[in-house]
Design a protein around this nucleic acid. Sequence first.
RNA 1: GAGCCGGUAGCUCAGUCGGUAGAGCACGGGCCUUUUAAGCCUGGGGUCGUGGGUUCGAUUCCCACCCGGCUCACCA
Length: 477
Amino acid sequence: MGNELREHRLRNLRRLQELGYEPYGEAFSRTGNLGLVCARPEGDEVRIAGRMVSRREMGGSIFAHLQDASGRLQIYLKRDQVGTDAFSAFRILDLGDIIGVEGQLFVTRTGEKTVKVSSWRLLSKSLLPLPEKWHGLQDVEIRYRRRYLDIISNPGVADVFTARSRILRRVRQVLDSEGYQEVETPILQPMAGGAAARPFRTHCEALGRALYLRIAPELYLKRLLVAGFDRVYELSRNFRNEGISRQHNPEFTMLELYEAYADVNRMKVMAQMIVVECARELHGEAKVRLHGGGVLDLSPPWPEIPFRELVWQVAGDDWFTLSVEEARRRAESLGLTVPAEWGRSEITQEIFEKLVERRLMRPTFVTSLPADLVPLAKCSANDPETADVFELVIGGMEIAPAYSELNDPLEQRRRFEQQCGGDASRVDEDFLNALEYGMPPAGGMGIGIDRLTMILTGADSIREVILFPLLRSGSDR
RNA sequence: GAGCCGGUAGCUCAGUCGGUAGAGCACGGGCCUUUUAAGCCUGGGGUCGUGGGUUCGAUUCCCACCCGGCUCACCA
């Protein structure tokens, strides 16, 4: 079927080989990438390389564009200039072939900087046709499965991933400047703690036992607080065996940071610093221009609103004082589905997630969550019903939860046991043991890097900021 | 996991109220020595997601499945 095009390219490969062109060449020293070379003055002799993405033949002359990560540059071949053999061989090339070129920079009649080719070499023969030059690659499935094609043919996609890379670098710079040390803790864990998601399970042959891919690094990082590390962070992959959506990929990148002798208020400062610095890194200011034409202003200070008040505003009552029955009745009258086993906190949280969160566009610290929703956080000194935490919401998405970390081992045990519903095997005894040696009071935070990247690049799906998002195994078409 | 929508040439898309399909780009042949979505002439290219069913006949109608998107559920 489509093999016809491939067969033809294979024939071209052999023809070029017969003419002495090695189809998969070796290193080629360049004057610079195409962007840099394009900035050089007319008359310069240059060596460039790239993928040929367009070609216009006109008898004795050929125009073509080479493309690399920095952009495109036009080249120009004249039969009288390169010689009949090199000229004819060039005509055997296919779009997508990667070539190296030597020549002189000039400017065409229409004002485009161009390399007048004196010689060229084949560096890599392409056997498959590229997507269409004008519309690019539209098929979302192929865009994700074959991201390389997406990046070759859709301008702007590479920029998103460059932005992501700059965010990661800037995050590390900020943390470094604040005296944080980067650490690496286990991804393969005997029990998956630190959050309440369903883990991926795997098996260790050497130990003959089940292991889990981590759902959060939290409990290990806190062990390091016990160890005496003052300020630590980990920036790496978490895995949650849950549903996939525009905001969820089963593997995602999380920054978690912990600072001894600090609390949730210090984390507010860190959150603002990190988000604003990343925005400045990408946009030069603490603002993001949205596709719709609006502007998302990230300038601090960000408002702090207690969870209780937000729910009150939207759902019209002080839900912290309602009975469970009353809360359920009201939630259902607001159109929500409420499982029978839910308590007041869960119902109230449902109100928050369904009716409040997605409306919070500007960065907002939602504070004082019900304590039973955050078993790893310390309760407020002045209200044991609520925890000393915030949930940072930007663009209607949870970006970062932060706590004054619970360091009371007895209280932590109570919370775990309450949470695990009698299943003692789900309590991380080793972690509790560590706490019993004494963990300094600390502030901690997790920042979802994928979602932060979405906010800062204007992406409306997490798949747009993950190079190879998880998909079902493909019908490879 | 559920609901809705979708899958037609390498790519971007049209189309068939049931009679096995078209365009543009890409590809082949021809012309053209400063073009740029080059142009002009011409040719080839399809298991219409997969498998069943209904029918004289299915790409079209029905069912199941696969894959994707969206929404929901799940994700303290």
